[in-house]
Structure formats: C-alpha cells, structure tokens
Design a binder for these strands. Structure first.
Lengths: 226, 226
DNA sequence: CGTAAAATTGAGCTGTCTCAATCAATGTGG
DNA sequence: CCACATTGATTGAGACAGCTCAATTTTACG
C-alpha cells in the first residue's frame, strides 16, 4: 500500500495545520466558492495548488466546447504531480464544492527534490500512481461500457476517500453533479441518469441529498469487468 | 520544442552506437521477431527496455479479453518513463515489427537521477510529455468520434517520426495492423476499416504496402476538432 | 419565495458493434 | 518455387448502446 506521497512528506503537520507549520515554499491559503474555475495553467505559472479542503476537478476542453474531466482532486492532493514542472498545460481546475487551497512555489519544490532524495522518491511514486490512474482511465474509456465506467468511478472515489479517512464507509459525501460524472466518464449527462437509475433499480447504490451509499460493493465491482 | 529527453542524455553517442559507447547501466541488446510479446512487467523487474529499432506497443488487457493499447514505442524511446520506478505494472510490451532493444538497469538509473540534476530534469520532462500524451488520449477516447481519433493517431505518429528523423515527410512506413489501430483508438477493427475507407475516399490519405501518405495534412488536422 | 440549476423522462436517431462471409496477402514447409 | 495455411482486409446485414433535443419536475439557493 502506498502512502499519500509528496504532500505527506512536505506537510508533516497535517493538511489543515496553520501556515506556520508549512514549509516556507507554501503560500497562504485561499477559499473560494463551488463552481468557480480557480486555476488555469495556461501560461507561465510559478506555483501549484494543493487542495486543503473540498473537491476539485481537472478538465480539458475541446475547441467545440466538449469537456473531459481528467481527474478529481480530493483534500490533500497536489495538482498533477507529473506536470509539476511544466510551465504550460492547458488544464482548468474547477471547484466542485467550496474549496480551500494553498499554493506551492514551483522553484522551491524543485530545489527540494534535487536535495532531498526522500522527497524525490515520494514524487516519483506520485507520478507513478498518477500515471496508473490515467492508464486505468484510458482502459475505461477505450474498452468499457458506460455503466462499467460509472461503477468504477464510484468505487475509485470510495477507495480514495477511505484511504484518507482511514474508515471504510459504504456511505460518503458525494458532491458530483450528473453532468460532471458524464464529463469524467465520457458519456452524456442524460445517459448517466439512465445508468444511475439502473443502479438504483438493482439496489446497487443509494444516492440522495449528495450522499452516496454503495449497497453492494461486491456486485458493483463484479459488474466492472463482466 | 522539447528534446528527446532522458534517453538522449544517457546515450550521447546515438541510439545505434556499439555497446561500448553506452553507459554501464545498459545491457546488451536483443533482437526479436514481430508479433512477439517481449516484455511483461508483472512482477519484480530490475530493468527497463529501450527500443533501438522497430515499433512496439504497450497494452493492457481486460479480464474479458479486450485490449487497450496505451502507447506506441518508436525507436529511441524508453518504456514508460513515469513507471521507471514501479516494480509492478500490468502492461505488456509487444513487438509490432522486428525489434532490437536494450535493457537499462533500474537501480543504476535511479542512482544517476539522484546525482545528476540534468538527467533528473530530462526525466521530469519525459514524465510530463508522457502525461501530456496520455491526457490527449483520454480526451480522444472520452470526447471524440472514431474518425477523429484515428486522424489524430495518424498525425501524432507522423509528428513523432518527423521529430526523430528531422525530415517531415508526408509519406512514412506504417506497420500498424487495423486491429492494432482499433485497440489504440478504442474502436472495432471492422470499423477502423470503414473509417480508413472514408479517408481514402476523401483523398485524405493513401495507405498501401505498409506505407502511409497523408495527402492533405491540413484537412486531416481540421477534421479532428470540428 | 422566486429563480436558476439539476434531475428525470421520452422519442427518435446514428455511430459503432457483432457476426459472418469473402477476399487478399503473407508466410511456410516441402 | 508452388500449394497450402494463416493472418489481415474488406464488406454487409442487423442490432443496440448511447446521443440529441426538448419537455417537465425537482432541488438548491439568494
């Protein structure tokens, strides 16, 4: 099992520690409302956000307006480890809930990596984990049916949340809109609705008031690759 | 514009130099026939292949037998920079043509990265580039039509080959089978055939005898996002 | 409490798949 | 160098997953 990576190394004091406990390369935190695009890495940027609280989504747009969500960011996650040193990526980061985040200084992070093998090692691990997740997403989009992708998304989010909170609840807070699920899984919002209806009908999940319960983890998991 | 990355740093003498010109962490090369799976990174592996000659594909399988090609490897490319330090990835690497490759010692590579900031920098760049390609693939599979994905694949391969040979020919060697195009773009082999027929009909490409000519680069490119 | 955003539903429609058959090309052993 | 065997390409008919668009209801929010 893998730890929480570079972030964990950087902030021994915990994600919601006061700024004084953060390394000097961390800047003061900001709070913003849900639904706001709070970061766009288009031109030269010299700092990278880390999510302290709330959910965010990293998305890319097609010229024709269609959108693909590349990943969700949960509390304690750094934006895209492997693009840490790309000055120019065309990804938007959008708050899905009210968000609190801090910024890390890029140059400082690099300095740290070069001089601290433990940090470097964590960083490399983060890259690998991120790549692994992306590989899985490609597999999903290329070779699985819509309902399987959605099942996987649900289970993956549950896993990631569980890893953080250390409790494995089949019920958890689920702020995603159907249109966001759609953009993450490469289908239409209308069709996400159909699929969720199907899941509810088969008593696989319960979803109401932004709270999701996976009623039958095993069956949902089995569904993914049948 | 980005260089050829870590590989370039490691092998100043050029990809087809005799072994004596290679760094000590490179092992002797091997040659294998097309169609062979020559590397499977399943359990602990202590070396990573670099392609000296030929094309290869990195693929992942679903339990139900379906396959997704995650990337193609062209001459001079290292297998998956960002998984360089993952001992366990479930990807197969398959030769698409007769292949010549060498192996790099993993521990040695790591040593080099920690001590040589220039190598580290190249490595980070490679990770970023690889992630960028993967992001694009996700965008493709999630939000583009089959013919657009195939157009993009063709153009991307043309670009990558051109970057290597420094000549920008609209005609190049194209060893991919339709079934491989299918597994890379998330469609069916039968449908790939339809799409290619369409491209030929519209005089966008010429494809015969493993040789591909892009007749109208601009129009093919425009097609991708319309 | 009114308004905007999300969810739900339905009626077509189309891109892509499945399966199967045929044809072409490539390789192999004799 | 031929005859067969295998693999890949091409094509067609039918099926269905998932899309579009639009209408309606529900939920969230200032």
């Amino acid at each position: 099992m893998r730890g929480l990576g570079l972030c964990r190394i950087l902030i021994e004091a915990g994600i919601d520690a006061p700024l004084s406990k953060w390394p000097p390369i961390a800047q003061v935190g900001k709070t913003i409302a849900a639904r706001r695009r709070f970061f766009r890495s288009q031109e030269h940027v010299d700092s990278i956000p880390i999510i302290c609280d709330g959910w965010a989504a990293v998305a890319e747009f097609l010229p024709n307006g269609r959108r693909q969500i590349l990943s969700f960011l949960l509390p304690g996650e750094l934006l895209s480890s492997s693009t840490l040193f790309e000055s120019c990526v065309d990804h938007d980061v959008e708050a899905l809930t009210p968000i609190c985040y801090r910024l890390f200084d890029r140059a400082g992070l690099w300095e740290r990596l070069v001089t601290d093998p433990k940090a470097l090692s964590s960083f490399v691990n983060d890259c690998a984990e991120e790549k692994h997740r992306l590989d899985e997403l490609v597999l999903d989009l290329g070779r699985r049916k819509a309902h399987q992708r959605i099942a996987r998304l649900i289970l993956e989010l549950m896993d990631r949340l569980a890893r953080r909170s250390a409790v494995r609840e089949p019920t958890f807070n689920f702020p995603l809109r159907q249109s966001q699920i759609a953009d993450a899984t490469g289908v239409t919002a209308a069709y996400v609705n159909q699929v969720l209806k199907g899941f509810r009908g088969k008593r696989l999940i319960k979803l109401e008031k932004r709270s999701l319960t996976v009623l039958d983890v095993a069956r949902l998991r089995r569904l993914i690759d049948e």
